[in-house]
């Protein structure tokens, strides 16, 4: 994915703003006296997968709802696919996919029928090279609902229900997909299947994806870039790796020599281990090099920002 994007950028799209799918500048949202968003800035380029992290109440859902055109911002500028979401028309709407946090609707409909019905709304909006909607059977297979095709929605389990939400979100083959906590309530298998699906969407359909999650492991696996939203501002923006380096270059090296265990923190783990082997050779055991995990990084960034 990353390689693809670099090729794209190298092949004539000189101005990165040309391929910006989501552009947010100084975004502000105020509910009464409370300013939830206090000047949020970020850009998402075509085909990127972005994870939006942050503590509860940091404004993740508000941000996503503004970009979906479901909420009118109090200030600042926002563009999705070149259009102000507050004034997006139906053609613009057809290019978005939306998966919100909680739905409990259409309980009496059967899975296949519902997907088929929703898909039909997109039929007049096929673009060149992007036939809308996705065929229903293909879609059900992609999210693993084939065997539940004739079930009524109310009879699905929580995880199946969530997969249906995702299926409805992508039925129109969106250019941009917004996912608000898509994997809440998934078991590990469903979570892994979902991750595969996100990779496929991003790779095959070049779908730009903005998702919120509380699962840092998920953010690290899925996202090209991570945005951390705290206190109404973006406090970090970069790959998991880059964020970790921002917070601390130190790695922890653990090893044992002759049954005795050692720990050492260093900013040059490779050099340190090389010296270690030069010194002790085959006596070294239990070697482990641990860099800051995304969780360490996240906690450090959020704490630093609050402090």
């Amino acid at each position: 994915m990353k390689v693809m994007r670099e090729l794209d950028e190298g092949s004539g799209l000189a101005d990165p703003a040309d391929s910006a799918v989501i552009e947010v500048r100084d975004l502000r949202m105020r509910y009464g006296p409370v300013e939830v968003l206090q000047g949020v800035d970020f850009t998402v380029r075509s085909g990127e997968v972005i994870a939006l992290l942050g503590p509860n109440g940091a404004g993740k859902t508000t941000t996503i709802e503004i970009l979906e055109g479901f909420r009118v911002r109090s200030g600042g500028d926002a563009r999705v696919l070149g259009t102000d979401p507050a004034h997006g028309d139906e053609r613009w709407r057809a290019r978005l996919g939306v998966v919100l946090q909680s739905w409990r609707d259409h309980g009496r409909w059967r899975v296949r029928h519902l997907l088929d019905h929703f898909g039909r709304y997109y039929a007049p909006y096929s673009d060149e090279g992007r036939i809308r909607p996705l065929p229903t059977d293909e879609l059900m297979a992609a999210v693993g609902l084939t065997e539940h095709a004739d079930k009524r929605v109310a009879r699905l389990s929580g995880g199946q229900r969530r997969r249906l939400d995702v299926a409805i979100g992508i039925v129109g083959r969106p250019d941009v997909l917004f996912l608000d906590e898509p994997t809440a309530g998934f078991d590990p298998q469903a979570r892994r299947d979902f991750h595969d699906l996100v990779h496929r969407l991003s790779d095959l359909d070049d779908t730009t994806i903005l998702l919120t999650t509380h699962d840092l492991d998920e953010a690290e696996k899925l996202a090209d870039r991570i945005l951390i939203l705290a206190d109404g501002k973006i406090v970090a923006d970069g790959s998991a790796d880059r964020l970790a380096r921002q917070v601390s270059r130190d790695a922890q090296v653990r090893w044992s020599v002759g049954g005795e265990h050692f720990v050492h923190a260093t900013d040059d783990a490779t050099g340190f281990v090389r010296d270690l082997f030069a010194q002790h050779g085959e006596e070294i055991g239990d070697l482990e090099v641990r860099r800051a995990t995304l969780e360490d990084t996240y906690m450090a960034i959020v704490r630093r920002d609050e402090g």
């Binding site: 919100l100 739905w103 409990r104 609707d105 929703f118 709304y121 007049p124």
Partner: peptide
């Protein structure tokens, strides 16, 4: 009921969904 359970919002997320 349908403002509460998300049916309306779902319609809003579709192109011309409110008409439907």
């Amino acid at each position: 009921v349908e403002r509460e359970d998300g049916t309306l919002l779902r319609a809003k997320a579709l192109p011309q969904g409110m008409v439907g």
